Simulated assay, not measured.
Amino acid sequence: MTTATVAPGVGALLREWRGRRRISQLELALRADSSARHISFIETGRSRPSQEMVLKLADHLDVPVRERNALLIAAGYAPRFPETALDAPAMGTLRAGMERLLTGYEPYPALVVDGTYTVIAANRGIGLILDGVADHLLRQPMNAMRVTLHPEGIAPRIRNLRQWRGHLLDQMERQLALMRSAPLRALYEEVSAYPLPERGADEGGAVSGGEHAPFALPMMIEHDGRVLSFISTIATFNTPMDVTVSELAIETLLPADPETAAYLQAARPAVTP
């Protein structure tokens, strides 16, 4: 005997998102120019929201684009946002723009990842970071979190690994708290279980003040007998109208001290054809 699984209705899903955002029914109603009574009726299934209301509530709850489609389907409507493959002709302009951005950032490292940190594109500066990484971690599809935290990845070369590992895991936890993603949850469970390497885990001590006090937590990585220091910045696309685009992130590694900047500029010919 089998038991059928009933998908949650739009009301239950909206109530879940409201709980994630820690917003009361009254506050959501005020934001959406509605009433707490109407929000309550939607959440309990006593009222079916219009397509416009579903999208309005999703907007005020900052629901990810992929999940907005799920809300529409649960309410009985067609999904609004397409999910276009990145290699589709329609994405040609976007791909070209990202390639120009990555190339223009050289010799500093930069890459593009999707919602589960699969590397979509990278510039030649990233080769410096990947020096010495095991071949099996570099096979496609390459995953940025896996490459960073795996004991055969760059983890043994990160001088402040405990700090940097904590930062990355906290970042993933924040994402998981704000969105439902089974693949991201599986990745988090995998990389958080990696053992710390025997050497490299804060071998150089925690980051603190010094000759060049950091203005943000840097990743301090050994390379060719020296320690390079990078600050990570992440950019996403504003008001995306496509699921694929909504989950892309461009990560750039900015030199955190003059020595790192000078070394990368001097080594620039090594990362060009």
Score class of each variant (00 low, 15 high):
A155P: 13
T3R: 14
G153V: 04
W17D: 03
A90N: 13
E211N: 02
Q163Y: 01
E198D: 11
L86P: 00
Q25N: 12
S47L: 10
V227N: 09
L30T: 15
R66M: 00
A78H: 15
T118N: 11
H150Q: 05
S35T: 07
L161Y: 01
Y77E: 13
P197E: 03
V65M: 06
V243M: 00
G19W: 07
L138M: 05
P82G: 00
I120T: 07
L228M: 02
I221M: 00
G9Q: 07
R268M: 03
L254N: 15
A155K: 11
T272P: 03
D170I: 13
R159A: 10
L169S: 12
M172A: 14
E189C: 08
R162Q: 11
T118V: 10
G76M: 11
P273C: 00
S232V: 03
E251C: 05
E190H: 09
T252R: 02
M53F: 07
V113T: 02
L161I: 04
A88V: 13
P197Q: 08
P49T: 01
R185T: 15
D135Q: 14
G132D: 10
D131W: 13
A262M: 01
L254F: 04
S246A: 14
A70M: 13
E222L: 00
L71G: 12
A122T: 02
Q171A: 15
E43I: 00
M145S: 13
L248Y: 06
A213P: 11
G104E: 03
M53W: 04
Q140W: 11
H223Y: 12
R80D: 14
M98L: 14
T118P: 08
S34V: 03
P141K: 15
G19I: 03
E189D: 15
R68W: 08
S34G: 12
Y263P: 09
R48Y: 12
A96V: 08
F81Q: 04
N238H: 07
L168T: 11
E43L: 02
R268V: 04
Y108C: 00
R100D: 09
E259I: 13
Q171D: 14
G92N: 03
P195H: 04
R180H: 15
A88K: 05
L264T: 09
L161V: 07
G76C: 03
Q171C: 09
L138D: 08
R15Y: 02
L72F: 06
L13R: 07
A206N: 15
R124S: 08
